[in-house]
Write a protein that binds this DNA or RNA. Structure first.
Length: 437
DNA sequence: ACTACACCTAGA
DNA sequence: CTAGGTGTAG
């Protein structure tokens, strides 16, 4: 009782079912790479199983404040900290601003439960698995941060991406403020500095590329500097340093109002941005919920089902194929197809297994997915190669993801005739990078 | 328009 | 050898 109260002391409360938002899931599934996560030590070990007290604190640094979040099954707890040097803003107005940021960032106006219902109605595969992916929704991220984060994501893993994004902040933005870890006021030993994400003008400097390479960014170092420079060159650098959004950032934000196809064309002009990265940015920061980024798993399976009708499965993913796959998945899941795909595939990456977010995987789950009930085709699923059977939880989850994807595609190919196929050819429209129309 | 292939780096 | 790719030259 007292312990529970202590864990939310100083926080404002926003009633919110866990099924609408699971911070533990959403903040670690590879959407944003900049949240700090702190396990909270329980006062009494006995209450460890008490699900009504928060187990973690999550922190995120904005331009003017650090947002701190905790969660229980029925509420989100929030508070924010501003630099003491700045204008003394009274708590109520400050937290009102924080709340409105939260609503926007987590897109709380979107009813996730309703979406789950819709996806369940449309797709038997989703219906069968929905219980395992509760509270997973898309963030509405800052476009520039999202763009650079996903430029970092090519041929890369979440862990390293997070490290790189953090390096960008600490290297190129002065610390906004420092905070001790949540639990303890253990002196100043654990204090951590919080840095906002750097603006385009700072990253556009020529020497940035070399420095980022030194920091281990690899070939992405040049992409980042070049993209930042392209944006700044095209839209101008800030008249006064330190002011709010730079022209380049505002321009990126305007892509939200454009059609998906047009916004994508703009993004593809930037260095290090191919179809996959562009689609991630569209989905996660540009209000384009129907966009389905085609990752390697979907990629492979799509090739298998749509690559070459009969010949070798070695077909590459071409822009047309990519479009076709995307269109077909929209036909399965609807206008929030990108969200649905994220729930099913983005969510169960490695990070999850270690956080106990997924319910135990039934031993027969793979078979169950492969031979779903209902209207799914009876086409037998190719069983996982015996050589891969290392029998770890991770491996099981990974295999299942592939199985789910394959099941969806099998259903697609079975209902081929009924599916409306109209897709635009992107390549035709992107005449040339780095050049106007 | 489609196909190869190199590219940085950390970790199985 | 791959990890949730992209630029570039044939």
């Amino acid at each position: 009782m007292a312990a529970a109260a202590a864990l939310t002391a100083g926080f404002r409360k926003l009633p919110l079912p866990l099924a609408q938002l699971s911070l533990a899931a959403v903040l670690q599934c590879g959407q944003s790479f900049r949240w700090s996560i702190f396990p909270l030590t329980r006062c009494a070990p006995d209450t460890a199983a008490d699900a009504t007290t928060p187990s973690h604190e999550y922190r995120f640094c904005l331009k003017d404040r650090v947002v701190c979040l905790r969660q229980t099954p029925d509420a989100l707890y929030y508070r924010s900290v501003c630099p003491t040097s700045l204008k003394p803003l009274d708590d109520d107005t400050r937290e009102a601003q924080t709340l409105s940021w939260i609503r926007d960032y987590f897109q709380l106006d979107v009813d996730l439960l309703q979406l789950y219902e819709e996806w369940s109605d449309r797709d038997p595969v989703f219906r069968k698995l929905r219980h395992r992916f509760s509270g997973i929704r898309l963030l509405r991220q800052d476009p520039f941060e999202c763009l650079l984060s996903f430029i970092c994501s090519s041929n890369n893993n979440i862990k390293r991406i997070s490290k790189m994004v953090k390096a960008l902040c600490t290297e190129y933005t002065p610390a906004l403020l420092s905070l001790p870890p949540p639990d303890e006021a253990e002196g100043e030993l654990g204090v951590e500095a919080y840095h906002p994400f750097p603006p385009p003008s700072v990253l556009s400097a020529p020497e940035v590329a070399a420095n980022l390479r030194k920091l281990g960014f690899g070939y992405r170092a040049d992409f980042i500097q070049k993209t930042a420079k392209m944006l700044v060159d095209a839209h101008g650098s800030p008249s006064v340093a330190g002011t709010r959004p730079e022209p380049a950032e505002e321009w990126l934000s305007k892509l939200r109002a454009m059609t998906t196809a047009d916004a994508r064309i703009e993004l593809l002009k930037l260095m290090g941005v191919g179809r996959k990265v562009a689609d991630c940015v569209l989905l996660m920061s540009m209000d384009k919920p129907e966009v389905v980024p085609v990752d390697t798993h979907v990629h492979d399976i799509a090739k298998k089902y749509y690559g070459v009708a009969g010949s070798k499965a070695k077909t590459n993913m071409t822009p047309q194929l990519y479009d076709m796959v995307n269109t077909k998945l929209v036909n399965v899941w609807g206008t929030y197809a990108g969200w649905a795909q994220s729930v099913l595939f983005t969510s169960d990456l490695k990070a999850f297994a270690s956080y106990g977010l997924d319910s135990p995987v039934p031993s027969d789950s793979t078979t169950a997915v492969a031979t779903p009930t209902g209207s799914l085709p009876a086409t037998p699923m190719q069983s996982p190669s015996p050589s891969k059977r290392k029998r770890g939880k991770k491996v099981a989850v990974q295999e299942e993801t592939v199985a789910v994807t394959a099941a969806v595609f099998e259903r697609l190919s079975a209902t081929e005739g009924a599916v409306e196929v109209e897709y635009f050819t992107l390549a035709e429209r992107v005449k040339r990078r780095r050049r106007g129309p």
